[in-house]
């Protein structure tokens, strides 16, 4: 029982990061219909920038998070206007391939800048731990959970109660009708790409404080957004949050009980099971193939 609670607690911390990553992934898909396979690279970029800001330059962590959020969001907006916008009207498949191209470029940039060697994890957060009975919860986990939750909650309020959030929901529902009412789809797309990238980038900073090593395999964590999003429903913001938590907790449990090799098996195995029972995930509505 203690092991179970212990694993669940760290699963929730990890899952909250996944929720944030999945949220960004889902947001871009929901607004623009694009499955962004560079999402993991956005996350990785966040982690590496955190290395520079926190380890090399020793900057304040709050400042670093804000600065990295800003940089990655700007990159997302730039990608929209520079690459995705000219591709409007192209088949979904070609656009998805382009995102894979973007992923490769970011990866190459990181390889050239930081080299192929792995780095140790970032120690910018308080390293102590909280003891509750037999339960040991590192401060890092708590902070991870708090920051991710704050990001998710802030986004949720933004999405539900601001004008631009309303416009994002309208465009996701009926692009033509939204455009007919004077909403600028491009502005909405750009904001979605910006926020999507921001979520991944900030998650990258947080994960850099959690993982054992930082290297070019980190993008795989971004791909965890995929099962999380599929489980929750690809076009559901609520689903992404739930899916992220489910994947995080089951992954930690599987790793704890059966060994680390089971992480991927559980995340993707769970996805297959959910998709067999509910093809659109728990909250999803939208088919991947649209005409």
């Amino acid at each position: 029982m203690d092991t179970f609670l212990q694993l669940t607690a760290s699963g929730i911390a990890l899952g909250s990061v996944y929720a944030m990553v999945a949220l960004g992934f889902v947001l871009v898909f929901k607004s623009t219909d694009v499955l962004n396979f560079a999402h993991g690279e956005f996350l990785m970029l966040g982690s590496f920038l955190a290395l520079t800001f926190l380890v090399e330059w020793n900057l304040n962590i709050v400042f670093a998070i804000v600065a990295i959020a800003f940089i990655v969001a700007a990159l997302g907006v730039a990608l929209h206007y520079g690459i995705m916008k000219p591709l409007v009207g192209q088949p979904l498949f070609s656009v998805v391939l382009v995102t894979i191209g973007i992923a490769i470029v970011i990866r190459a940039f990181l390889l050239m800048t930081y080299g192929p060697l792995e780095r140790g994890r970032i120690l910018a957060l308080p390293q102590g731990q909280l003891d509750i009975g037999n339960l040991v919860i590192p401060y890092v986990d708590i902070i991870l959970f708090l920051v991710s939750s704050a990001a998710v909650v802030i986004f949720y309020i933004f999405f539900k109660s601001t004008t631009i959030g309303l416009q994002m929901r309208a465009v996701a529902e009926n692009l033509e009708a939204a455009a007919a009412m004077g909403v600028s789809p491009n502005k909405v797309f750009a904001v979605s790409w910006g926020i999507g990238a921001l979520m991944a980038g900030v998650a990258g900073v947080m994960y850099g404080n959690f993982t054992a090593v930082i290297d070019l395999n980190l993008a795989a964590i971004g791909l965890r957004a995929f099962p999380a999003a599929m489980i929750g429903g690809l076009d559901s913001v609520e689903g992404a949050i739930l899916g992220g938590l489910i994947v995080g907790v089951s992954e930690q449990l599987a790793a704890g009980y059966f060994g680390g090799d089971f992480r991927d098996v559980v995340a993707f195995g769970l996805m297959f099971v959910v998709l067999m029972v509910r093809p659109y995930g728990f909250f999803g509505t939208k088919d991947l193939i649209r005409v």
């Binding site: 309303l166 929901r169 309208a170 529902e173 033509e176 939204a178 007919a180 004077g182 909403v183």
Partner: peptide, 22 residues
Amino acid sequence: PEGRMLFPSLTVEENLRIGSSS
């Protein structure tokens, strides 16, 4: 628009508000 093209999952008030996007 033809066929109304409302945003079915947005509230009536939100639908009206979208009309003021300009």
